[in-house]
């Protein structure tokens, strides 16, 4: 899942020096989107807005084409386009309107559950090499701030991560899970695990 947040005011002010057409994707619905803030911003910048298209699933270029067709007159007149959506939506509009400058209105942040239906408390990092067999089914890449594969660092205090004391140390969770299922022996495996980043780069 992705979270979108409005860009900072300075950057937005810079965009709105010229007349812009606005695409506002409330997108994957039921997913975090700064609807209210964007509404306020558009009202504040009213005089620089030449038209608005409120859409969902902007990432579907089939649909986006139809929104563009419907608003073509206003888009032609506009000196640029600002898109409030995740980075995927911005890229789709930029691809469909190559001769227009497209401004991203939001910054996109990555959040747990890349392909899950909703936000989960676990995450998959698409590393290409599932390590869950060594860790009782808790991902060391995502549940450890350092993505350590061979055991914890020494930084956990009260079983919490050194980076964020709110977060459980992934390796302590792994240890506790393995104890529960009587498979602590897995931890003692002498194989030293090393990441294979080529899998990510080549997508294999």
């Amino acid at each position: 899942m992705l979270i979108t947040k409005l860009k900072n005011q300075q950057e937005l002010d810079r965009y709105f020096e010229k007349e812009l057409f606005v695409f506002k994707c409330f997108g994957c619905k039921e997913v975090y989107f700064p609807e209210e803030e964007i509404g306020k911003l558009i009202i504040a910048k009213q005089s620089e807005v030449s038209g608005i298209a409120e859409v969902d699933y902007l990432c579907n270029d089939d649909f986006s084409k139809r929104y563009i067709e419907k608003n073509m007159n206003e888009i032609k007149k506009a000196r640029g386009i600002v898109v409030f959506s995740c980075g995927v939506g911005v890229q789709v509009i930029a691809k469909l309107l190559e001769d227009k400058t497209v401004f991203p209105g939001c910054d996109t942040h990555y959040l747990n559950g890349f392909q899950g239906l909703t936000v989960l408390d676990c995450d998959c990092n698409q590393c290409g090499e599932c390590y869950l067999n060594y860790t009782g089914g808790i991902c060391p890449i995502t549940s450890c701030s350092k993505s350590l594969l061979n055991g914890p660092c020494g930084g956990a205090k009260n079983k919490k991560c050194e980076v964020n004391p709110e977060m459980d140390c992934g390796w302590v969770l792994i240890y506790e899970r393995l104890k529960k299922i009587n498979k602590e022996s897995i931890l003692k495996d002498k194989n030293t695990l090393v990441r294979d980043f080529e899998k990510i780069i080549k997508g294999i």
Partner: peptide, 21 residues
């Protein structure tokens, strides 16, 4: 230690290997 604990929290942490490897 993790990068975020120091004076350049915006740095990219590497952790390509770990102590064991």
């Amino acid at each position: 230690d993790h990068t975020t604990l120091g004076d350049h929290p915006d740095a990219k942490p590497v952790f390509d290997l770990d102590a064991v490897s």
